[in-house]
Design a protein around this nucleic acid. Structure first.
Length: 236
DNA sequence: CCCTGATTCGC
DNA sequence: GCGAATCAGG
């Protein structure tokens, strides 16, 4: 298997979407987890929260700490989470993909991104932390929701659409850093496409979908499965 | 053990 | 450029 444009796009999208290298490898088919990681690095995609910490042995430095070889660039995840105004800094749990039910691609399929966007209505929601911008979250009750926007007051949203293309649909190949990568529908289906709106700066999704993607940890009892940009059970 | 991502290095 | 082998933390 070679890294075709499409496969690279899929890799990028899934990687940025928070999928693990294993999941991506499985979806792509014909490549190993290592291959995915290796490619991701070569592409410059870089380090999402890794379980392995750089091991910053900086305990003792009598006089000359200097040197600081720092072979590893911890490079904070895209949205550095700054001062949470409110309580427990529930980490911006990326659109977790806790979907074990990934359909085994027994044969190398070009692309297999499973998606499940269980329609989740606002009324369905408990108090959530709505993203107001890179790292900033504001707690709100369902009733008192306001537009989660904060950074960059809307100017003229007219030219918001990156291209007339997305007026109808944004395909995998139309994705770039400027457009919302939130998938709509299911891959393989005729109308599958991505949101394509202008992204909330610093996030892979538009403001609206950031609201879906980033939510507070709720008490287990009234927590429901979060919407998954990828990897959800295939509905058919 | 399992998982994760990072890095190395022969190809 | 590629990815298996290896490393190292959770």
């Amino acid at each position: 298997m070679s890294w075709t444009e499409e496969r690279i796009q899929t890799l990028k999208t899934m990687w940025e979407g928070g999928q693990t290298a294993s999941q991506i490898a499985e979806a792509l088919g014909g490549v190993s987890r290592n291959a995915v990681i290796g490619k991701a690095h070569r592409l410059g995609l870089q380090s999402r929260p890794s379980p392995v910490v750089p091991k910053e042995a900086e305990a003792k430095a009598p006089s000359a700490p200097a040197a600081a070889p720092a072979p590893r660039a911890p490079s904070p995840p895209v949205a550095a989470a700054p001062a949470p105004v409110v309580a427990p800094p529930a980490p911006p749990a990326a659109p977790v993909a806790a979907a074990p039910a990934a359909p085994r691609a027994s044969e190398p399929k070009p692309i297999t991104i499973t998606t499940d966007l269980s329609p989740r209505t606002p009324s369905d929601q408990q108090p959530v932390l709505r993203s107001v911008g890179p790292g900033g979250f504001v707690r709100q009750a369902p009733g008192e929701q306001q537009p989660p926007i904060a950074p960059a007051p809307p100017r003229r949203l007219v030219p918001a659409k990156p291209s007339p293309e997305i007026a109808g649909k944004t395909s995998l190949l139309d994705l770039n850093d400027k457009v919302c990568k939130w998938p709509l529908g299911h891959p393989g289906e005729p109308d599958f496409h991505f949101c394509g709106d202008k992204v909330n700066p610093g996030f892979p999704y538009c403001v609206e979908h950031c609201g879906h993607a980033y939510q507070a940890q709720l008490p287990r009892r009234d927590r429901r499965a979060p919407p998954l940009p990828f990897g959800g059970p295939r509905m058919r």
